[in-house]
Design a protein around this nucleic acid. Sequence first.
DNA 1: GCCGTAAAATTGGTCAACCAGTTTATGGTA
DNA 2: TACCATAAACTGGTTGACCAATTTTACGGC
Lengths: 234, 234
Amino acid sequence: MEQTVFNTFKKIQIEKPVDKIIKQIKTLISSGQLKPGDKLPSERKLSEHFGIGRTHVRDAIRKLEFYGILKTLPQSGTVVAGFGITALEGLITDVLDLEGNDFKSLVETRVILEQNTARFAAMRRDEKDIVSISSALAAYEKAVKEGNDTVEHDLMFHLKIAEASKNNVLKSLMLIVAPDIITFFKENDICTGTKPSKALEEHYEILEHISNREPEKAELAMYNHLKEILDTKL
Amino acid sequence: MEQTVFNTFKKIQIEKPVDKIIKQIKTLISSGQLKPGDKLPSERKLSEHFGIGRTHVRDAIRKLEFYGILKTLPQSGTVVAGFGITALEGLITDVLDLEGNDFKSLVETRVILEQNTARFAAMRRDEKDIVSISSALAAYEKAVKEGNDTVEHDLMFHLKIAEASKNNVLKSLMLIVAPDIITFFKENDICTGTKPSKALEEHYEILEHISNREPEKAELAMYNHLKEILDTKL
DNA sequence: GCCGTAAAATTGGTCAACCAGTTTATGGTA
DNA sequence: TACCATAAACTGGTTGACCAATTTTACGGC
């Protein structure tokens, strides 16, 4: 695949219809035609107003709904959150220029999330958590000794810890970040770089601290476990 | 609205078609009919196989795509991530039982995210960041002194800090958490509870530390600023 | 028998029509 | 005049058909 010449232009991409509509909705709000708490014009009206299919309008609404900016009531209408114009405009603007995730930010964020899931897990874990974390660790150990697929089992171990933290939001955020982490590690073969035996040992230490209800130690162990990744690829 | 009797059943809700299909796709993977890296059957095939409209199939695919589990190539096909069956099953399972966000988790997570955006902002801010944070703070101050809408301007201040942290992922996660925070505060009038003048003072302190490039102090100031919220409603 | 080209089938993307509830307007009645 | 039943209009939800690009297949020339 010869793409060298065109890579210069890779940043140039046609604005997706969804973002176009979101921008239009933002304009509606900015111009005061649409105030916080108002009911949005019907999807039909919007689609013909913007000269675009209703599908795209629905997509845009659902995206804004995901970020809590709109709320659609079935068979009744879609409503703008009662946030105040400042917050609404700010939020929509931020939604629009969500850039791709660079790996540095990704890892940085993962470390932060994981330090805290480990800490909370040590505070709140029950027996079931210990069991599920242990079994995930066992699967990881088996994979290490057989020499393959360590990345996924590694991540499952970490996800079980996130579950034990009893914090839905933290777990959700981990879930969002996780696949990107896996993909990158797969592509760059970092997993083979870090010694699996050492990682295994560290996993056991983390589990130990969580099991013993030692939040600070668990957090620190998690940090030490992940910190070298931070340095590896900066 | 008399609902007391029915509240007992509020947890029972019809399984959304999207989740139903996601479950089916998970089954396909579990049973080995669909392996990591494989191309998914076409949307048409899936829809008639499951006896459901193609729209729902597309919705399910897009949801799984958001979590990085599927990748769709326009006019070509949809592909399963090359994760290994363990990770795939685990991730899909977690996607399926994403529960609603309880407020305790929400605030806990917010504090964590914000401590770190403040820290990174103090390390990486440039002059433009200082300007935009300052102007957000000015708007907040004006709102405080006029006595309304503090919540949104408050949040905008925090979002500008997230931008200054130069960490895309952290900012995205803040964006996800933000609206829920606003909504809850609006509904429960917490903002009026905490003294706005004190909060304003704390905001200035945070900005000061970020401006002076003092990561630890910025992080601590942010923690102190938010910690009372943690205690307020536990 | 091999390769290149073109046509046919298949793909996700898009759209306009239809469905089942909700809301609003209407008009007749007390 | 106030009110309520009924119907008309409108809402988001869902579906099947159409589009353009891709992929596969088939055929003809070499």
